[in-house]
Amino acid sequence: MDKVSLNDNTLSDIVILANTPAFMFKRFRRDSSVQILASRLSTPELANCANNFSMRQNRSFLDKVYAYAYLAALSFKPASDVRNELRHYPNLPIEWSAELIKLILENAVSETYQIVLLTPQPSKFVGLHSQTSSTLSNVTYTTKPDIKVMIPINNHNERKVVHLD
């Protein structure tokens, strides 16, 4: 497993300042060290580390911060993988774990897409024919061929549109 150094001070500040799991989750996801964590470690590794840090005997405050970081990193992984992994850890002994897991699953990467075919209509553009003339004239432009877009379907409001060539 690659060693990833987390932004201890920034993440500790977020945990102290967090008044709700939603606020903490949003801020953790924005942190670059959490994003690097997500890119370097696999889903089982992240879930295992989150569990280990939360289960530590005489757990320190920093252990708790790390457990949250590994949990937040899971939200960058495919939703089905995360759901499968978290089945092994139904009761993480850490504050707000149930709410965080809900947020992770809502935000995890969707693997289900709705494919929409867009057929652009020929557009009419009304504009000045030339800069020196005040006469308006209709100018018709040709359009591109059909555009296929993939819209991820998940529980989250965020919509990521992926254009296909």
Partner: peptide, 20 residues
């Protein structure tokens, strides 16, 4: 709602306070 009493170490709080 939830009431928790997990303490935050004084050193961590001091660091947070000076930054904020």
């Amino acid at each position: 709602n939830v009431q928790t009493s997990e303490p935050i170490p004084i050193g961590t709080i001091n660091g947070f306070e000076s930054r904020f």
